[in-house]
Design a protein around this nucleic acid. Sequence first.
DNA 1: TATTGTTATACTCTATAACTATA
DNA 2: TATAGTTATAGAGTATAACAATA
Lengths: 149, 149
Amino acid sequence: MTRVKGQDGADAHVLELMGGVLGHFRALVAHEDWGHPLRSSHLRVLGQVPDEGIAITDLSERLGMTKQGCGQLVTGMVELGLVGDGKDPRDGRVRLVTLTPQGRRTLERFEQRVAETERAWAGAVGPRRYATFRAVLRELAEDDARRTG
Amino acid sequence: MTRVKGQDGADAHVLELMGGVLGHFRALVAHEDWGHPLRSSHLRVLGQVPDEGIAITDLSERLGMTKQGCGQLVTGMVELGLVGDGKDPRDGRVRLVTLTPQGRRTLERFEQRVAETERAWAGAVGPRRYATFRAVLRELAEDDARRTG
DNA sequence: TATTGTTATACTCTATAACTATA
DNA sequence: TATAGTTATAGAGTATAACAATA
């Protein structure tokens, strides 16, 4: 159960609310059959791999994690067939991470689920209110990135 | 750095945005000096302990986690002095978890930080837009709870 | 030397399974 | 027997430190 009320029935604060909504997606990913183990960390990676490929160090920066952790994560995803890795002909040190067709399909299917969910949400709260919600969320994230990044 | 743009500068989707905003709070908690180690799991617990105390099993349900995990978490928090535990006089099996004065102070201070942040956000995006954002977020969380809970 | 990436290790958070103690 | 809680163990996700290979 996702809680939305705090103690004594008081309104949950923003953090609990966001956490609950995010939990909805974790459940969505976990309960669907993807043909192989799929974790949300995989999806975050898939969304950051450009067509031309990317080095572990750059990918780790995009993901906001260490290159060590990123390297391990990618190794697991190569074994699952979600990404491929190869040498960069221009720099022998670089492991160039690319999307496999399967990785691309998985990413697209996930993005469809997100889009479906957003349509359902917009229907539930009203398209105009949802548009405001979405815009405010983006502005808050951008503000935060400006301060910390 | 909290990312807000996906690959090729495309807009990040809702999940990345929420994740980024939540990350802001994780950083806020991590960088402040609380006098002892404080993790976000602690804060979630503190927010769910009523004045009259609560049993581990009930607390675990409020938190949406197993009673085993909840018991461990509470044990650590007792050592930190954030909560106290005692026997329930009405049922000898029950470990009654209560807030210590220190736990209450920590919770209040955290809630002040949340309130300050929300005021800053409302100022940044406009009070009316922020009110819509907040209301939509609550409705989505409630909707989700109704479906899954 | 600086940079890319790996290996080794550890910690947080949480789960499942098997258990003990009390009702 | 049913319920409250603990102990043991494991796995995801990530970090830091020390290292190897290439530039």
